[in-house]
């Protein structure tokens, strides 16, 4: 029963939060670009409008895959939310799955989008889907390296805990156990994750799969109405998921205990603090990056993830391992 109510709350909370942060992101980006920008509630209005619009399925599409992909995308990102610690709460499904599962679930929306693109039968969408797959293959390794390094170090410092459980990671902030080498390594890994974030979310400079001026919207070009609304929601929730993941891994600190608050007040303070952290992560990882860069080419995206970023991620991993061996 608790699980059921928890999932309902997290589902709606995640969707609303995703849209709010989308609105804030759009407004901030607009101000940085010398525009006025839409009001913060604009994403809600967009979704509302899309939901009453006709849902067009192209003649050349495979309807059940085409219509199923947006549901799969939204369902998989919402599921990740169940495994992440949010605010003062432990993960809803803690004990049922760990970081490795989260990694796989994170890959699902991109796969769903690519499948939907292939199934829509538009040449733009097919090219966009190919690009989506290329990008997924590019950023998975740095992402995995960062996560594995962290879990390994925690496991070494605290042999008793379930190292891949997000609940355990977020209740034991990793910084406390790191020596100087590990500290540098962890900072490198935070940087890697912040650069994986815009790729995971298909934001400029890594929005090659949608690339408005090249592919007219790419993978999503044929989607309209309810399907597009679902994809938008999935995008919003995914922003929250990526932010919450980085927070859980690296910045799980809470304010309630420090201020000596407990119970409801402590929970409220923790939740507010979590929202602020989320805002900062999105500001750095999404808004600033997408305002300050042009879209890269497919080959450049693949190169930048495979060579420099993987290099940095592996360097971080090595530093953390060395740190674990020499500074116990």
């Amino acid at each position: 029963m608790e699980l059921l109510w928890g999932s309902v709350v997290i589902l709606f909370g995640g969707v609303v939060l995703g849209l709010v942060y989308q609105g804030i992101d759009r407004k901030l980006a607009a101000r940085m670009q010398a525009r006025i920008g839409p009001p913060i509630v604009q994403p809600f209005r967009d979704i509302k409008k899309l939901l009453v619009k006709e849902n067009i399925v192209p003649e050349s599409a495979v309807p059940w895959i085409y219509n199923g992909a947006p549901f799969l995308a939204l369902a998989s990102v919402v599921t990740v939310l169940f495994y992440l610690p949010l605010g003062d709460q432990r993960p809803l499904f803690s004990g049922y799955g760990d970081l490795i599962l989260v990694l796989y679930l994170l890959a699902l929306p991109a796969v769903a989008l690519a499948i939907g693109g292939f199934a829509s039968g538009s040449p733009y969408a097919v090219i966009g889907a190919q690009r989506e797959i290329v990008m997924m293959m590019s950023y998975e390794l740095p992402l995995a390296a960062a996560i594995v390094a962290l879990a390994w170090r925690l496991n070494q410092a605290l042999p008793g805990i379930a190292a891949f459980s997000l609940g355990a990671i977020s209740s034991n902030p990793v910084w406390a156990y790191l020596g100087p080498l590990g500290f540098i390594g962890a900072i490198l890994l935070v940087g890697v994750l912040l650069l994986v974030m815009p790729a995971e979310l298909s934001k400029i400079p890594f929005d090659i799969a949608e690339a408005e001026t090249e592919l007219a919207g790419g993978v999503t070009v044929e989607y309209s109405g309810r399907n597009l609304a679902l994809l938008r929601l999935a995008d919003g929730v995914k922003t929250v998921v990526m932010g919450a993941l980085i927070i859980a891994l690296f910045f799980p600190y809470r304010l309630g205990g420090v201020l000596g608050l407990a119970g409801l007040a402590g929970g409220a303070v923790d939740t507010a603090f979590f929202l602020v952290k989320l805002f900062l992560i999105i500001l750095v990882g999404v808004t600033t990056v997408r305002v300050a860069a042009a879209r890269l080419k497919v080959s450049q995206v693949a190169y930048s993830f495979w060579v420099p970023l993987t290099g940095v991620a592996l360097a971080g991993l090595v530093l953390i391992v060395l740190d674990g061996l020499f500074f116990k």
């Binding site: 940085m32 400029i204 690339a211 001026t213 860069a293």
Partner: peptide, 16 residues
């Protein structure tokens, strides 16, 4: 040109 490259910041500032 900035817009075509996905660099909307250049677009907006140049037009400003």
């Amino acid at each position: 040109a900035g817009h075509f490259l996905g660099y909307n910041t250049v677009w907006m500032w140049a037009w400003k």
